[in-house]
Design a protein around this nucleic acid. Structure first.
Length: 296
DNA sequence: GATTAATGCTAAA
DNA sequence: TTAGCCTTAATCT
């Protein structure tokens, strides 16, 4: 259940532990057998993330394209060398995809029997990775990978020159509510339901404000804040949008309850103005906002 | 033990 | 517009 920060961490992880290695690729579940055969025995050259899309590039110009969707996940395991190379490290928050089975595992003796429906398994010399539950798992060409990228908007975690202007332009050229546009991966890639709610609150923006009614300065600041808070997410391995002054005494890092301003806080008093945090359905997803802080 | 909802999206209808 | 992915944790009975 990742937003862009998790996928960025996964790309970093694959680069750290598998880059330059010949990988054994299989599909224990059987639904990716043909694709796995295309990748089996090839060398991983680069792992990249754009928004919520992960691209594992192999040296024969075939790319493993993965999108985790709502509940896809990668599990990793391996020996001390593998764990030492990991940018993710020790087990962390339950529910994240970035979990090691057992950090104190004995010496690596190959991957375990697949548990559940493992769509694809990558095995290197020092460790393994299992993918399950993904929306997209495909072996594609470099050209096809490019066309996937072409359908995506700017990624605030890449924040390349011109990205900020592209976002502002993309937002202002549409009349849909800003809360809907933030979830549109063509407008901005990598934002999900948590960051959507939290950055709108942080910028005190009315979720129903049409994109074309957002002032240019506010749109730019929204991009900047999204980039900053998502970069924190990459560092922390979780979404924390509140400053330490909102955390319970001595709670560093904060509990889940204290890490957000409005996400999943419906019915509770706003941390800033004490108005009751609201919830509504927008395009099939739950939208959380503070009617006091985020009024038109 | 069963049911539901979830940090999402694609493709079929 | 809806099914599907086929997991996980929290909430029900």
């Amino acid at each position: 259940m990742p937003e862009g920060h998790s996928v960025r961490r996964l790309a970093q992880q694959f680069g750290d532990v598998f880059s330059g290695e010949t990988l054994a690729v299989s599909s224990p579940q059987g639904r990716f057998t043909a694709g796995a055969a295309l990748l089996d025995g090839q060398v991983l050259t680069e792992a990249r993330a754009h928004g919520k899309h992960l691209f594992l590039h192999f040296d024969h110009a075939v790319v493993l394209h993965v999108h985790l969707g709502l509940y896809g996940a990668w599990d990793f395991g391996g020996d001390a060398t593998f764990r030492g190379a990991s940018s993710i490290g020790a087990p962390r928050k339950i529910g994240e995809s970035e979990v090691f089975g057992d950090a104190r595992a004995p010496a690596y003796a190959g991957p375990p029997e697949p548990k559940g429906a493992v769509r694809v398994r990558l095995v290197g010399r020092h460790g393994w990775a299992d993918l399950r539950g993904a929306t997209t798992c495909a072996a594609i060409t470099e050209a096809e990978a490019q066309s996937v990228l072409a359908r995506l908007g700017p990624d605030p975690l890449r924040n390349q020159p011109g990205d900020r202007a592209r976002f502002v332009q993309g937002l202002q050229s549409r009349k849909a509510p800003i809360a809907a546009l933030l979830m549109d991966q063509k407008v901005i890639a990598g934002v999900g339901n948590v960051y959507r709610a939290e950055v709108l609150f942080r910028q005190r923006l009315d979720p129903w404000l049409p994109g074309n009614a957002v002032p240019e300065e506010a749109a730019g600041l929204l991009w900047d804040d999204t980039a900053a808070v998502m970069a924190d997410g990459v560092r922390d391995g979780r979404i924390i949008t509140t400053p330490a002054s909102y955390w319970a005494e001595g709670a560093v890092p904060p509990s889940a309850d204290d890490a957000h301003y409005v996400y999943k806080r419906e019915g509770l008093p706003c941390r800033v103005c004490a108005a009751t945090v609201g919830i509504t359905d927008l395009l099939g997803r739950k939208l959380y906002w503070c009617p006091g802080c985020q009024s038109p």
